[in-house]
Computed example of a mutant assay.
Amino acid sequence: MSRIMASGLHPSRALPELASLDRIQDDCREARAEFRSRRLLDPLKDYNGVYPEAVEAATLVIDALDRLLVGPTPSSFSAIGQTMDLFGEANGADAGLLSAIVGHKLQFQALRALAAPPISEDDLDTLLDASVNKTAVRKHQALADEIGRLLLAALDPHRFPWVLQGRAPTETERHTAIMSTAVLISMNTVYTRRRSDERDQLEGRLEQLLIDKGYTRAPAPRGGIADVGMLPPRGVFMRQCKLGKHNADLVVMLWDGRLLAVECKASNSTVNGEKRLNKEVVADAGDWYEQFGRSNLVAAALRGVFKPAKVMEAQAQGVYLFWWHRIDALADFLDRAR
């Protein structure tokens, strides 16, 4: 789709800036520099913040292995100073304890991190062919037992050598297992938060800008916006709204009556940037223009690492560009689109 096709029905109306290749190259350099600055400082601060809680979660789960794992291993061993009958089919998993762990975010991560490599929530559901949640585990002993069997079968033999050997851990083994598991879940938590936080920060900054410009936020309709008759009134915007066949981060009804759909994309590499911008946003833009009309606008708010040629390509396919470090360009457009 060409730029003319995307906006040609109302050439007199205000349009966002069309960037030259030189401008895009400058923006990509500045966005990359801002990304590097954030990555050097923020992750360590976040990691140090979550690590103590991760240690507590790992300690609780590892000290309760005898109540969580189920399977055909030696029937008894002395654990943490006391002899217990463990891991037999007759014993089963402690469904109440397992339910509480599943309902606690970091403890659930610690539980899934017993495996080598750690098992994601989606993979756990798939492997068990069931939805693993607090209520389901508490009500269904069979599900709790299946979780116990799966975790024992996938247990990391390097972190937990004492389990398969049917003995109690040494203090050093226990300490090492707790610390290494805490590191795993701390890193995963920081990585997950980082991805969602960057998008949320970008969306939040755009939301505040819209409010500053006199726009009002409204809740997205249940089921989303299926056609033009369901679009919000002028001066109203929505976050996380299904628009046609795709989800839009921001749906804005400009004061001049046009729809502005905005996708917020944060990227940590040029490959990731191409996926987020050129494959996701461009595809959505084509469908939105087709369904809601080419007098409307689709934009991408960008932060992080993107390849200039790919950004230029997205712009040529009808996607307007706004950058985190130059958000005043969006403010200027909103002023003109009245």
Rank of each mutant, 00 (worst) to 15 (best):
L114Q: 02
R294F: 09
E56I: 05
P233E: 15
R276C: 00
P16I: 06
A116H: 11
S267M: 10
A329P: 00
A100G: 08
I211C: 09
Y51S: 04
S180P: 00
G88V: 11
L65A: 00
L9E: 14
F322Y: 12
R336N: 06
L124M: 14
S37N: 09
L97C: 01
L41E: 09
Q317H: 14
L164K: 13
A182Q: 06
D94R: 01
V55I: 14
Y51Q: 02
R326S: 11
T192P: 00
G273F: 10
S295A: 12
S75R: 04
A33Y: 11
Y51I: 08
T135E: 10
I24Y: 07
G257R: 09
A79I: 09
K310S: 12
E53C: 00
S267Y: 12
A299T: 01
L297W: 04
L330H: 07
L259M: 15
Q291I: 08
A337R: 10
H175S: 11
I24T: 03
E30Y: 01
R3M: 10
S267G: 12
N48H: 08
M253L: 14
N133V: 09
G235M: 09
I101L: 12
P118C: 03
G92I: 12
A168M: 02
E198A: 15
A309V: 10
D200T: 13
M253W: 13
I80E: 03
T170I: 06
L302D: 05
M84R: 10
G81A: 05
Y191R: 15
A261C: 07
P16K: 02
P117V: 11
A110Q: 08
G166W: 02
V55Y: 00
D46P: 01
P117Q: 06
L40H: 13
G148S: 08
R29V: 13
P221W: 10
N48V: 03
S7P: 00
A309F: 04
K275E: 13
D129M: 11
V55Q: 03
F77R: 09
G8W: 11
